[in-house]
Nucleic acid binder design. Structure first.
Lengths: 218, 218
DNA sequence: AGAAAAATTAAACGATTGTTTAAATTTTGG
DNA sequence: CCAAAATTTAAACAATCGTTTAATTTTTCT
């Protein structure tokens, strides 16, 4: 009889999970580079070095497998925000730290922002993203902190949403546009990475100066 | 015998091009929303309200049709740059005008930045983009103007490439992330469009202040 | 009006898609 | 050690993919 893998059963058995993990790793790699529509389950199976049916055995369907990969990616994608927003810092300090961490993270995982935005953009089901993705951010109290900072005049009068767009624009797009930038300027990958490392400082200075205008060091 | 449509022949005949244009319009719509891999030629044919073979009759293949749509989109994508850079203005004026025009344009065509970056990102052939896309920009002399502005101290010491990334980040990403932003903040499309119209002013002020630090109005 | 050319359609092509079935192999637990 | 369970494989499923063929309709030009 056909049975699904360990983690879907009520009484999971201790098993070698390496196959399942290998499939997840392969799926992540293939989905990230080719996209959901741009690859077949056989592409993933070939990357695993194994049979197609194994994917359905462990993950039921291509769609389910993708959702799993997407949720993991989304978690990584938001991780820095949650960490920084949860810390005990001023808004200005948090902004600096966030830019710092996001750049460091995306320098190591440059394909993530494009993967996330692309998946959301072509979300086939049309279903909105589960709220549990964004709830952890709201729970950090960052929104209240921003409201308070506006009341006290620490930060410029600007809507939370515009702040978000400014931040994300400057920390996500540079990595989403790597290929475009390379071809536009005719440079190699290493040169661009140097530019991106330098870019971190520019973004920090620009955003801090814009969002926290009166730079009183007193 | 099988013959290809008018514009591919040596001696084109005057013909009703409305069908060909209808296919291009449908293809643009479908490719923009679903992506090359996310749609079938039958999706496009259905959008046209006609037969599948017509697409191959006029455009030889799905890939050729896509290339045509992509080139048109790329042309639109770069149009504002070429116009502004060709004008007879100072660098600061050009920066302001470019942001203004890009925002106005992408407010009307918000799906364009994602389409372009996504197409470049998953470029199957691996071939670099034809140089005729970017040449018109170089020919405006904008690069020399920027070098001169750096020498004279009009603009901050920052590489041309970092300037480009800063500009593109702030004028492209806000439209690429529309769905993410909407779901993140739980707002409707109209509210977000208001935010984006307001965002234009923020981006202008922020980038001008950063790139042209000594704001001497003398 | 009538023959030639162009446009459009219907049908089919082989290849590939995601998924399922059933058999074979390996691992587990008594 | 051996039956039962879990894992892996090979093969096939119907559906859809991009494309082509051939027939039909429409348009063009004399």
């Amino acid at each position: 009889m056909f049975k699904f893998a360990a983690q879907y059963e009520n009484q999971p058995m201790k098993r070698d999970l390496s196959t399942e993990e290998k499939i997840k790793a392969a799926a992540k790699k293939v989905f990230m580079t080719k996209g959901f529509d741009g690859c077949s389950v056989r592409d993933i199976a070939k990357e695993v070095g194994s049979n197609v049916s194994l994917l359905n055995y462990y993950f039921r369907s291509k769609e389910k497998l993708f959702e799993l990969i997407f949720e993991g990616a989304m978690s990584d994608f938001l991780q820095s925000m949650i960490e920084v927003f949860s810390s005990d810092l001023t808004l200005k300090e948090k902004t600096t730290l966030l830019i710092e961490k996001e750049f460091d993270f995306f320098l190591e995982h440059p394909e993530l922002p494009m993967f996330i935005l692309q998946a959301i953009h072509q979300n086939k089901s049309g279903a909105p993203m589960p709220s549990h993705f964004f709830e952890p951010i709201a729970k950090t109290g960052i929104f209240q902190q921003l409201e308070a900072a506006q009341a006290s005049g620490e930060i410029r009068q600007i809507s939370l949403r515009n702040v978000t767009i400014l931040l994300m624009s400057n920390v996500h797009y540079p990595f989403m546009s790597k290929k475009l930038t390379q071809q536009f300027h005719g440079i190699d990958a290493e040169t661009l990475d140097q530019d991106l490392r330098a870019h971190k400082a520019y973004v920090k200075e620009m955003l801090i100066n814009f969002l926290f205008p009166q730079n009183q060091t007193v």
